[in-house]
C-alpha cells in the first residue's frame, strides 16, 4: 500500500477529531434527555414540598435538604484533613518510606469502590462508634471517600506554585510555615477550591456510601440534628425508580434533573473560580 504521508496525516487527524467530538455526545444526550423528560415535573412545589402518597406526589424537599447537609458535612470532615495532609506532603515531607507509604495509601483509597466505603462506614461509624444511621456517619463516610481527590488536587495546586517563592521567603527570614501562609497557600487557593468543589460534587451524587450510613427510604420531614437520618437525592432517585410501583416517570426524571442541576452548579462554580483567579494570577 502506498498512501502518502499527507493522506495518513489527514486520516489520523479525522480519527482523533471524531474521538474528541464523540466524547461530548453522551454528555449532551444525557443532559438533553433528562431535561426533556424531567422539566415538566419542575415547579416550586416540587422542590419545596414533602413527598406524599407513597412519594408519587408532592415534592423532594427533604431529599434536597438532606443532600445539602451531607455535602456540607462532607466538606467539614474532608477539607481540613485533606488540605492539611496535602500541605504536609507538598511542603514538608521529605521523600522517605513513610511518605511513600502515605502516598500509596492515598492512591489505594482512591481505588476503593464506593459501596465498600458504605460498608466500612456502616461498620465503623454506624455500629462501632454508635452514631447510628445519621448525617454524621454519612458525612464521615463521604468525607473519607472524598479525601484522595482533595489531597491530590491540593498537592498539585501547591506544587504548581513556583519554587522560587519559597526560596525568597526563606531568604527574607521567613519560616516554612510563614511562606505557606503568606504566599504559597493564597496562590494555590483557586486550585485547591476547584479540587475541593469537584470532590464534594462527586460526594453529593454518590448513592452507595450513604446507603447503609444515613439515607432514609422515606422520611417526610427535615433532619433535626447530625444524629438524625435523612433522605438524600441520589438514594431517593434509586428508590422512586426501582422500589415504588406506579411511580410517575416525570417525577423520576424531575428528581434526576434537580440532582444533576445541583452537581453541575457546583461544577460551574469551580470553573468560574478558576477562571477568575487565573486571570489575576501573576506568574
Amino acid at each position: 500500500m502506498n498512501v502518502s504521508r499527507y493522506t495518513m496525516q489527514k486520516v489520523a487527524f479525522a480519527i482523533i477529531t471524531t474521538a474528541a467530538i464523540s466524547v461530548v455526545i453522551p454528555l449532551v444526550l444525557v443532559i438533553g434527555y433528562i431535561v426533556a423528560q424531567g422539566i415538566g415535573a419542575l415547579s416550586w412545589e416540587f422542590i419545596s414540598a414533602i413527598p406524599r402518597n407513597g412519594m408519587r406526589e408532592g415534592g423532594i424537599y427533604p431529599a434536597l435538604v438532606g443532600t445539602l447537609w451531607l455535602t456540607i458535612g462532607t466538606a467539614v470532615t474532608s477539607i481540613p484533613l485533606g488540605v492539611g495532609a496535602a500541605i504536609y506532603l507538598a511542603e514538608y515531607a521529605a521523600d522517605s518510606w513513610f511518605t511513600r507509604t502515605i502516598r500509596l495509601a492515598i492512591i489505594n483509597l482512591a481505588g476503593v469502590p464506593s459501596v465498600v466505603y458504605g460498608l466500612f462506614g456502616l461498620g465503623l461509624f454506624v455500629i462501632f462508634l454508635r452514631f447510628g444511621m445519621s448525617i454524621l456517619a454519612g458525612s464521615l463516610t463521604l468525607g473519607i471517600m472524598t479525601l484522595p481527590v482533595i489531597i491530590s488536587t491540593t498537592e498539585q495546586a501547591l506544587v504548581a506554585v513556583p519554587q522560587s517563592f519559597r526560596v525568597v521567603n526563606a531568604s527574607l527570614g521567613g519560616t516554612t510555615w510563614q511562606g505557606i501562609r503568606k504566599v504559597i497557600l493564597p496562590q494555590a487557593l483557586p486550585g485547591i477550591m476547584t479540587g475541593v468543589i469537584l470532590g464534594l460534587e462527586r460526594a453529593a451524587g454518590e448513592t452507595a456510601p450513604i446507603l447503609f450510613t444515613v439515607a432514609a427510604f422515606f422520611l417526610p420531614r427535615l433532619p433535626h440534628s447530625v444524629f438524625d437520618q435523612t433522605m438524600a437525592l441520589p438514594y431517593h432517585l434509586f428508590v422512586i425508580s426501582t422500589q415504588v410501583p406506579g411511580m410517575p416517570i416525570r417525577i423520576q426524571y424531575g428528581t434526576a434533573l434537580v440532582l444533576m442541576a445541583f452537581v453541575l452548579t457546583m461544577n460551574l462554580l469551580a470553573t468560574l473560580i478558576r477562571r477568575h483567579y487565573r486571570r489575576r494570577r501573576q506568574w
Binding site: P162, S164, V167, S171, V183, P186
Partner: peptide, 10 residues
C-alpha cells in the same frame, strides 16, 4: 541576598 533573576512575590 538578592538573586540573579528578580522574583517579586505575587
Amino acid at each position: 541576598i538578592v538573586f540573579a533573576v528578580p522574583v517579586p512575590l505575587p
